[in-house]
Design a protein around this nucleic acid. Structure first.
Lengths: 192, 192, 192, 192
DNA sequence: AATGAATGAGCGTTCATTCAT
DNA sequence: AATGAATGAACGCTCATTCAT
């Protein structure tokens, strides 16, 4: 038995996700959200007392940053890590960002981050996570790099920044950056 | 000796610069701009027929991307370039972005880029300029890197991205990146 | 027993009808309409998304052109027609214009016709209807007038124009025209 | 020697004439008039202290109702009158309205009449004049019609109304009326 | 006579939010 | 839980008019 129409709350969130991604939070009125969701205007405020709560709920419920389980040294924590192949490891990380979110939610995450604290926090968590993984991957690949802690951090931070903002940057500046090339670069910089 | 009161148009732009940087373009009403500038509401529209024209005027008049003079090989074109010291050259570039703009205008440039074409274009110009200079610096430092054109470009693009977005990224993700460390990293990656 | 207060939408239309008739559409602000209707400004736009929709609604809902029922020869189609008494027939038509509308709506109909298409269309319908009835009346009265089709049409058009614009003309030019006298004139012109 | 550019006052009136005819008095701002006239905004108010004065000046200076000279029986007063040819006389009147005004000024005259007293007065004068001439023409043609004074007046008023509003009516109702046919009709109505 | 900056009331419209039902 | 009428502050913008120069 297939579901009937999704329930109102879900439909409201669906509509908001599409609209926020398309035109931004400010430019999406609650009335329009209700219209797209095909629910009466008042119902939006029944579920979400303030407009901002819709955004918060979206970020809470529809983005998920996959965190490294257990301690930093837990076995199997980093599926993509392959000792001895640091560039490949980073490339795989690039292709499997530890972020579960629709493309629309990704756009929202970047677009609203500088105006809304809860969004910014989620983005910060994503950043930490990617940074952590990149650093771990580099550590695993270069067991000797211990003395170069500072350089390793800079490498991980650089990779993280480029990786997370890649899409965004291309839209703003028109310049495309290939994450694989950056991965290779980073690895060379730390190379034997 | 204090200046006489600046003329109204300047006061309007001053107020807008401060407000746009502080709360964003959308959230700064024309009435508030007029209030801060201490001019009547109508005067804003006397000088700037549409609100967006205030933003455009700010970007036009208060940001300036310093472009490389003459041809690509003009002497003195790249004041920060010192052959044989690529890392230092990049570091100097990091400290002297070819962008003349107040801190407030920089915030505006990054913040409004994805919503307003004219802002995006200015940012694109800045990006190109930094990329060009970074690439030139790396070429000068590594005359032998000719065969590695692709890697050189990736290096320049990576450095540019980190450099331009550094401030922004720190605000969004809480992670600080030291441009000097990135410069050193990049240079190492291109190796001897 | 006085009616309970009419609902808001009705009160808005009442206020607009009075104001549009009194000072014209352009000169009646939405704020003033709301004030007269004793409703908050925003409510006007709840019911009528654009100001023009108020005028359109008035014309749609508060003017009605009574069209000739059935086919052109339907019995009883033209209640005022009395064969053999064409002047009387026209006079009766003059006294019972096939237009159901308050005096205020009539003023609005004439006043806004040249600026607003929907008003003009309604007025055009009224004109056609009066013309049709006048022509029919003359045909019934002068069964022999078949050869004079052109003259008959001119007569009907003349009568229609004078009849419909009578009130308007008196206001503009100060000259009053007696529809009965025109009816008699028209009939004489078409001879025995 | 041809004139240099017309003087400012004239240019302002030219611009206002074109704009008022095109979009109406209310919808033509003084700033736009100044723009079209290529004069500074302030100058409009130098010549015409209030906006309405522009309209008044246009009507005063650019429309002229040619009045019957001398007394009502002055010889040669009615150039188009030809005793014995009343229909022809009326037709000639239709073709040579005693109104000197550009097509633009005619539009203004009809359009603004119901909102502006000075315009309405000028239109009233035109109406009287046409009425007078039509009545005189009919009197000359039908010397015996003395007993029918009332009918003669109705005939003249009908002809006047149709003649003056002909163009206007066609625009509003889509119905065209041929003044010659009306002339013939009127004359038949008074016929021998 | 000529100029354009200055003024402020008012306009149509939007919108988040409230609330009685 | 569900509804949509009601509310009023605020928004971007227009405009006739004033006035110092």
């Amino acid at each position: 038995m297939s579901e009937p129409t999704a329930d109102s709350r879900t439909r409201i969130l669906d509509a908001a996700e599409a609209l926020f991604a398309d035109r931004g939070y400010e430019a999406s009125s609650t009335a329009r959200i209700a219209g797209h969701a095909n629910v009466p205007k008042g119902l939006v405020f029944h579920y979400f007392p303030q407009k901002i709560d819709v955004l918060v709920a979206l970020v809470d419920e529809r983005t998920f940053v996959e965190e490294l389980p257990d301690g930093p040294d837990a076995p199997g924590a980093l599926v993509e890590a392959v000792p001895g192949d640091p560039a490949g490891t980073l490339s795989r990380l690039a292709r499997r960002l530890p972020l579960h979110a629709s493309p629309a939610m990704r756009r929202i995450l970047f677009r609203e981050a500088d105006t809304h604290k809860s969004v910014r926090e989620r983005l910060g968590r994503l950043n930490s996570e990617v940074f952590l993984r990149a650093r771990r991957a580099l550590e695993l690949a270069h067991p000797g790099a211990r003395g170069d802690q500072a350089r390793l951090e800079a490498a991980a931070a650089t990779f993280t920044a480029v990786l997370i903002y890649q899409e965004n940057l291309a839209g703003l500046t028109g310049q495309h950056i290939d994450p694989d090339a950056v991965a290779e670069l980073i690895v060379r910089a730390l190379g034997t």
